[in-house]
Design a protein around this nucleic acid. Structure first.
Lengths: 200, 200
DNA sequence: GTCTATACACGGATAGAC
DNA sequence: GTCTATCCGTGTATAGAC
């Protein structure tokens, strides 16, 4: 049906507009009005594309996290640098520098989800996704570098994701690239100390 | 003057109410109405105690950070555990577990400040305070444990604060105490690898 | 000085015209 | 189906009564 297609397109238009508004001006600026204005659709249209604003947020966060997880698959085999953990972190950091304006809204979205009981699971899923993605990479590194981790992979994954996440948040406050990059390098050293060459 | 005292007391009442509301229900629930209701003062009173809501937020964040920095002075000489970094992190973690409901609002306050150009400096100051407090502790540890760090103290301070901060944020999503505590222990190991015994 | 009443903008959501 | 007009609650801030 023509109508169904139009509605689906509307949904897309609104979602894309929501991304633009929220990434540009923050979650609190992402009102249905502002989003519809950005999308060039009447505000009334919002509620026959989405049952509620929460439903839209749910979809938006899901897409944002999937995109991020896809774009930020930490690479196990970046050439640069002697330290393999550092190499991987550099890859993630490059992603941050490529989209610096997205970092604050991403944190905002997490906290927004955490506040809303109906969205809290989404935040849990978000970080579980981060952790699991990192866990996979750690497995790749083991194989590629002929090492093994001296602590369980899930634990190390959480440690690295958390350290990186916290570093980005701190960086948002002072935008000190040098300090952040120096910290990343030493994270590499510190976390690599939790590995040992494989003996086969 | 009686009046001046009353106004100052009002300010205090409102601030304390703001803390309660924001810690309980989140920053977005901290409207002047809700706060004044909580304080038992008429909403109109707000604006002859504070020029604007922003002014109140500014004071609230300042107090919150000072209190936190004071309560969370990382101790260099906790007896428990073999690892000195781990001991210190345990101390911070205990503080988190003592006020679990404050962690989300604290993040919210940081992001709120980052969004507002007039408050952004406050967020910068907040994290600089965290970093400097940690830096001092790292110096204490050096002396107490007869070690020295193999990287500059400010860098390590940023690394530890970030790792801890990120860990708390991740913990907020899944509330997995065990995973967090295991990560803390291994952070201790990893960061202690960046030290060496002093040779005198 | 203190509080009531209110102004005015904006939020999400919906009724009803077309 | 689509959009306009509007409802109703809530936000900050202020004017003016007491």
């Amino acid at each position: 049906m023509m109508a169904r297609i139009a509605a689906a397109e509307r949904r897309q238009q609104i979602l894309e507009a929501a991304f633009r508004v929220i990434y540009r001006d923050g979650v609190s600026a992402g009102s249905t009005r502002a989003i519809c204005l950005e999308a060039g659709v009447p505000q009334g249209a919002f509620h026959y594309c989405f049952h509620s604003k929460r439903e839209m947020l749910e979809e938006l966060i899901t897409i944002a996290v999937k995109d991020l997880a896809e774009a930020s698959v930490p690479s196990a085999d970046l050439p640069e640098g002697a330290n393999f953990v550092h190499s991987m972190l550099i890859g993630l950091w490059r992603e941050v520098l490529q989209h610096p304006q997205r970092q604050l809204p991403l944190f905002e979205l997490t906290l927004t989800a955490l506040r809303d009981p109906d969205l809290a699971d989404l935040a849990r899923w978000q970080y579980r996704t981060y952790f699991e993605t990192m866990e996979t990479t750690l497995g790749d590194i083991e194989r590629a570098r002929k090492i093994e981790w001296t602590i369980p992979r899930p634990r190390l994954a959480r440690m690295i994701v958390s350290a990186f996440d916290g570093l980005v948040l701190g960086w948002l406050t002072d935008r000190d690239d040098q300090a952040a990059e120096a910290a990343l390098a030493s994270y590499g050293t510190a976390f690599a100390s939790l590995s040992k060459p494989i003996e086969d």
